[in-house]
Design a protein around this nucleic acid. Structure first.
Lengths: 346, 346
DNA sequence: ACAACTTTCCGAAACGTTTTGGAAATAATT
DNA sequence: AATTATTTCCAAAACGTTTCGGAAAGTTGT
């Protein structure tokens, strides 16, 4: 039915090997025969079968992304960068949505037992002690985004520094009671980012000589409801915070909602700071710690391709995993302000 | 290197055909031998090579989605539905990001010349006169989402009705000068939704005996900047509108921004209505026409799978393309209000 | 004109499955 | 016990490429 390389060979009066060679831009084929072959290809409207090709080359032309997708606006933003870059390469991108640990191990096995992809991006999903050796043994090119492991090149944002900047800026504004809403990931994947951000907060607190009050720290889902609930709890404390720092913009929006429901004015009665720099933060004029999300996606693909290339070059000597740390920066908008001194007549 | 079906056959003391048959849950294999084979598979940790398998079955286990991705929040929301459903099927989902006509035709050719996917979802991308015959001839199962063609089962929202409801509700509130900000798609794909929405508006106008003023209609990009620019232009007219209906929530947010910059109060000085029902609309308390976005994604996959199944059942008699029309509904929030009668002393 | 290279090309082998025609084993029937 | 029908299984063929060893053609040097 479909036209094969044999048809082309016959039409051009050459052997199949020769057709294959012009297809793969190999040297060692005379210009005149190359012409013949090309014209035959054109005449027959031939396109090589990618399946048969990978059958022997063992290369699929596919990049995989494992991503807890539905969860966060942040992920979507990075995903755009990934999709963009992949489109401009010759690779296809397949998205594996992982929502729980079951799916996670399912895909881990799926992708490792047989080569379905030429490279893999693990998004917010560091492989655990069990999975790590399997991945390294497989030799599959892998890059981690928004996750860290010493065994794979990892692309992270300076979470500690970002949190430090955020909290510090709040402190500089005179705030001393600062609530922190951290994020968890459902399914209990390890998620070090959360810890790093907490550490950043502690550093800022330490430098300013502020005692950490466990009542002012809470981990919730990465959504508005989580942020809202935590904020409500904080603000109903006998000694409520005057500023709240959330580990994501979306949670911060929840804080805004909580404040509104309590008739608290932002930023006068309460400063709120987010994390991520999603488009939503701009619209809501939310102060936040900006992550270079598109860049993370693009760089992720670039590093992965680099790894795939090098794999072919020198089979054995694989480059050591890199740790790439991208900078965040503070974007102060309208939800943070200097602490207003309370007056009785106010 | 990798363990093949021959290894399993040898280990189990059977022929490869038998192994293949137990793999494919075929009948005609004695329980005792099935046991032998299964244990050998387990012992050798064997997994069949998907590539070799598609080589002969011609089925890839992959669903493709062509989508102008980066453009709209709406697309992302539907994409979630797609990814979700695909995850629960045995198919993988590959995303083809198409940003311009060049990419569009590139992928059209890529996917048609050789079978790379078992089915295709065309998102907001109706095939034109040129492409349509190629697609039908290819026999590839296809469903259109947010696009319509008589040749393929199409999943659309009742755009006309939705726009009618939106405009009508504005009219019921006393508005008579209503601006309409339509959307365009870069790359000039055909995009009938836009027209349908315009028709809905005309119908509402007609019923209310309102003259359509071309000055109050403008098509922009599907983004905030577009909405803002259009709104600014409308509002600087000698006789500005008292309500604006935008073809997407994001554009409507742009309208909100324009209003704020002109010190216009929403909804008292200006009513604004969006379209889509993206999460953002909820956060911004924007009145809007809600589309069942997740459902669109899920239904899209379901219909595609259905088509793929039926393709195998009865090779020739293919089901006629369906036109599935999903309902929208009005969600009135805080950006729409009855027209305030202007008073001089106000 | 012949040897010795170099370039160009041919076509069989290989990749790892599923499919299939028919053989072998087993069960049923006479 | 012999024949027939039914399961169960084997192994070759096929899918459409790339690779590779070696043959053919072309080039250069003597």
């Amino acid at each position: 039915m479909a036209v094969t390389i044999y048809d082309v060979a016959r039409a051009a009066g050459v052997g199949v090997g020769t057709v294959s060679r012009v297809l793969n831009k190999s040297e060692a084929v005379k210009d005149t025969t190359r012409e013949k072959v090309l014209s035959a290809i054109d005449r027959l409207n031939y396109a090589p079968d990618p399946i048969a090709r990978t059958m022997i080359t063992r290369r699929t032309g596919v990049l995989g992304v494992l991503i807890p997708f539905v969860t966060r606006a942040f992920s979507v933003e990075v995903l755009r960068g990934l999709v963009n870059s992949a489109t401009n390469s010759d690779y296809e991108l397949v998205i594996y949505n992982v929502e729980d640990n079951e799916q996670r191990t399912k895909y881990f096995n799926l992708l490792l037992k047989r080569r379905r992809v030429d490279g893999l991006i693990l998004f917010s999903l560091p492989p655990d002690e069990e999975a790590t050796p399997l991945f390294v043994k497989s030799g599959l090119p892998i890059v981690l985004i928004d996750a860290y492991s010493p065994f794979f090149t990892s692309l992270v944002v300076n979470n500690m520094e970002g949190a430090y900047m955020a909290v510090n800026s709040l402190i500089q504004k005179g705030h001393r009671r600062i609530g922190f809403i951290n994020g968890i990931v459902e399914g209990n994947f390890k998620f070090n980012q959360a810890n790093d951000r907490l550490i950043g907060l502690h550093r800022a607190f330490g430098e300013a000589g502020i005692m950490f009050d466990p009542q002012l720290m809470m981990a919730t889902e990465w959504d508005r409801a989580g942020g809202r609930a935590a904020a409500l709890q904080f603000l109903n404390l006998p000694e409520p915070p005057t500023a709240i720092f959330a580990a994501s913009d979306v949670q911060a929006i929840g804080v805004l909602e909580a404040a509104r429901s309590l008739k608290l004015e932002v930023p006068n009665d309460l400063s709120v700071m987010g994390f991520d720099g999603v488009e939503l933060s701009e619209i809501m004029e939310l102060s936040t710690v900006q992550q270079p999300m598109h860049k993370m996606g693009e760089l992720g693909i670039a590093k992965l391709l680099e790894q795939i290339e090098s794999e072919q070059m020198s089979p054995s000597q694989i480059k050591a995993p890199e740790l790439i740390r991208l900078d965040t920066w503070l974007v102060e908008r309208r939800t943070t302000a200097p602490l207003r001194v309370k007056r009785t007549e106010d």
